[in-house]
Design a binder for these strands. Structure first.
Lengths: 127, 127
DNA sequence: CAGCATCCCTCAAGATACTG
DNA sequence: CAGTATCTTGAGGGATGCTG
């Protein structure tokens, strides 16, 4: 996230600042619990809204909608509407979404790897 | 994050459920903007509270304290207090903290890699 | 300097209800 | 079924002041 400054070169620093603030904005969008859980749950599958609702433990209708819109806006998920009655809407990760998913997978692996450490650290801290 | 159920084996399902809910709790602690930015900022360095405050763009005194406590509790950062006047407190990532940092690095790389895609996707969506 | 406590307010998020 | 809109609440987070 740290942007090199290239001070004294021809690089326009205003551009760098814009890019940096945009990067932080993307990071803020993506670095939140629900977004990451949705990405992890989607994985390589295609799921309907209601299926996601069931699989993402504890997410409300509203939060799911909001986060899916945000992920769609950033081009991380594709949204396909089938104009049937009742409507059917399917979500799937895009290429960039899959890319992010790999990093979320790594976070999950990290959780399992240090699970015991974390648990004991908590006990030490709390006691 | 998905825990295999091993249905019909000797594995105690209650244990699995406890582990699963703990994993989700850890994930919720860690998967938030400030925690990840702090981890990324610390990197391989050792920083004082005030240095972190300056380097983590936009973080308030209170949020920084809260998140550092949380990270300390989970054993991701070490906190060293030098009993001088005025006091000096230094923070550094632990081994597990470094492990998580690698995944955050990957997220940052992802941001830069898909930066242009995301920007254009946003324009398409907003227009 | 770092941390804690207090106050206060905004906005995030749940509940509910209505539409295509 | 999926999405949007409205209302309401309370927790998140800022500002301030005090302490070791």
């Amino acid at each position: 996230m740290v942007t090199k400054q290239f001070k004294g070169t021809a690089v326009d620093e205003a551009d760098l600042r814009r890019a940096d603030s945009l990067a932080r904005e993307i990071f803020s969008d993506v670095a939140n619990k629900w977004a990451l859980l949705i990405i992890e749950t989607l994985g390589e599958r295609t799921l309907r809204f209601s299926e996601l609702r069931n699989e993402v433990e504890g997410v409300s209708h509203k939060m799911l909608t909001q986060n899916l819109r945000m992920l769609e806006r950033n081009g991380l998920v594709d949204r396909t509407v089938y104009p049937t009655v009742p409507p059917r809407v399917e979500y799937t990760l895009t290429v960039s979404g899959q890319g992010l998913r790999k990093t979320v997978d790594a976070m999950c692996e990290w959780t399992h790897r240090y699970f015991a450490d974390i648990e004991s650290s908590r006990r030490r801290f709390d006691g």
